[in-house]
Design a protein around this nucleic acid. Structure first.
Lengths: 335, 335
DNA sequence: ATTTGTAGTGTAAACGTTTACATTTATCAA
DNA sequence: TTGATAAATGTAAACGTTTACACTACAAAT
């Protein structure tokens, strides 16, 4: 790879001048600029981002870190796309880390990204008291949390109104006469699930139905857990008439379990999923779901991160987006 | 952030010694090692990967680039997971770029990754003559192509037997009496689709059915294209009795179109998708699909990349994995 | 006692940039 | 013409590492 020095020699100027040309420094004469640019393309010179980053750690090379819990979850894929969309338009590169809900792995990525001198980080914390992220914030590295906030420290957040999203879903079910509604949740150390549970409870409350702990199940937030928990639910004596599942993957897993037992949706059981997918409409039956605007969340987070980079002393902001209940065919009135 | 110098001062040795401790150089005395390690944890020192990478560009900081065409496609998500799985076990960090089938964006990522001094690259080329990737290979940067190869140059590849995969799918349809089978393809500059088309043709040939160009449609490989093309197909006079769709997203889009028109699968039309998904079984109806081992492909690619990094002169390797036809309910015998 | 060897450590250059500061050259007013 | 000022360019230090080489101490061999 050719470097500044090579270009400098080729165009018979100093490396400082070449550097200035690269950075559009106005105080280089037009003739020099032209000469240097000619050399640059002759030698196919590309600045070495590593050296740039080492030298001037202030946003020169525009590198963003993005840490997400589960790349298999289409919701987070939407988030990634939103972040990338903004990043691409503003010439940022994005380094993605997927920690698969593994705290150790999350920490590893945090360390790596930090020592890669990223200019800013978008992250979905594994839980509300994530020390690793707190540390970054304290070091004044621009951080935006997504999907989930942090409890111990003030930080920029973009998330969704989980409590209301869940409330609306359960309310819909209750209004159709369901009384025993199972909740397939992810791990309750993840803030989103706590909030969804509280929406679930509030809806029950509204209808004067007692909260029955034995109807809520929390394990991991993946396909397999959804499948296994649904199996358990379906075998309960006094089987629930409806299932509320806490995310995309859980829903899909639950669907597989229901279909494997040849149970009809919605005649024999209703199901609502948190998280909509483009192909929800092609599921059997078309899925009633709580839609989260993942793409917009990602985009907004990137935008906020950029603002924070520009003005580190800006007041921290919490953006809470609305969910939308997409009523399709997987829920039906009962008796 | 503390640096070598700080640690050196804290433990009253030179920075060289600290560096040696970090790199487990055996020629440091045990007492010094202990002393330095104490300082390291006292100061919470973490090596700066940027500086490491600048200084010793040979695999010291273990950074891999991964460039994929479409992160919305669950197949590529599987690939990503496979790569990450291997990378994590071997202490590599992965930098992911998603180019959304946009050649300009692919080139941008190629440039960025290169100037980030990555140790190796896994990439799904946008087409067989991708100059950008060729250049990397010529510069002896370790490269493994995935899903698609390169025609002009010898390079490591892990892909799938697309020709046979498509052949088996179409063969299955033909054996059930279908004669008019539409093919919803992605852009034919992408090698995989050329191969899939040739499998399609070979199967037709076997049954002595003439190839009818008006039944194959190629646009982008996304959800929307699948939806639109399927709409067109469904409105054909003399409507095909079966659809073979070229990837995940196309299939899902096509399903939406079919359902929107209330056409029954498989009674009125059969459909086979290239690419299986965990939730294919929960679609309406359970989807017959050609399964590609995405996770394994990613893992294998990472492994091959590692081998190439270790031995750059190793003979280039082509790994071709098998597909598997998952027969479910979206295909049926006709008349 | 001198040499040789070895283990442990330090010094300084290098990686490819950016940038404060110094220097040169051109421009212009007096 | 001179001096002052501005414009253009160059020099060298710095970013945080790694590493070739030099050096010191001390043990062993002569």
């Amino acid at each position: 790879m050719s470097n500044l020095k090579a270009v400098a020699e080729h165009s018979k100027v100093s490396i400082a001048t070449v550097s200035r040309v690269i950075n559009n420094d106005p105080k280089v004469s037009k003739v020099t600029v032209l000469k240097v640019q000619a050399s640059i393309s002759a030698l196919e010179y590309k600045p070495n981002r590593v050296a740039q980053r080492l030298r001037s750690s202030k946003g020169k090379t525009k590198l963003l870190g993005l840490i997400i819990p589960d790349i298999q979850n289409p919701f987070f894929v939407d988030v990634v796309r939103g972040v990338e969309d903004y990043a691409y338009q503003h010439n940022f590169a994005v380094m993605i880390g997927n920690f698969g809900q593994d705290e150790k792995k999350e920490k590893l990525y945090l360390d790596i990204f930090q020592s890669e001198n990223i200019d800013g980080l978008i992250v979905a914390p594994i839980h509300g008291k994530d020390k690793g992220i707190e540390n970054l914030v304290k070091k004044d590295i621009p951080v935006v949390c997504i999907d989930r906030g942090l409890t111990e420290i003030d930080v920029d957040v973009v998330k969704v109104d989980n409590e209301n999203g869940a409330f609306n879903a359960i309310d819909h079910l209750l209004s159709m006469g369901h009384k025993r509604i199972a909740f397939i949740s992810g791990n309750f150390k993840i803030p989103t699930y706590i909030e969804r549970l509280s929406g679930y409870k509030r809806a029950l409350d509204k209808y004067g139905i007692a909260y029955d702990e034995s109807l809520v199940f929390a394990r991991n937030s993946d396909y397999k857990s959804g499948f296994e928990i649904a199996n358990k639910i379906l075998e309960l004596e006094n089987r629930p008439t409806a299932i509320f599942s806490g995310n995309n993957l859980l829903t899909l897993g639950a669907l597989e379990a229901i279909h494997a037992k040849d149970i009809n949706i919605p005649e024999e059981i209703s199901i609502i999923g948190f998280d909509d997918m483009p192909w929800s409409i092609s599921l059997n039956p078309p899925l009633t779901a709580v839609r989260q605007p993942g793409f917009d969340m990602g985009k907004k987070a990137a935008e906020m991160l950029y603002e924070r980079m520009v003005d580190p002393s800006k007041k921290k902001e919490k953006v809470i987006l609305k969910t939308e209940l997409m009523i399709r065919k997987s829920t039906a009135r009962i008796e």
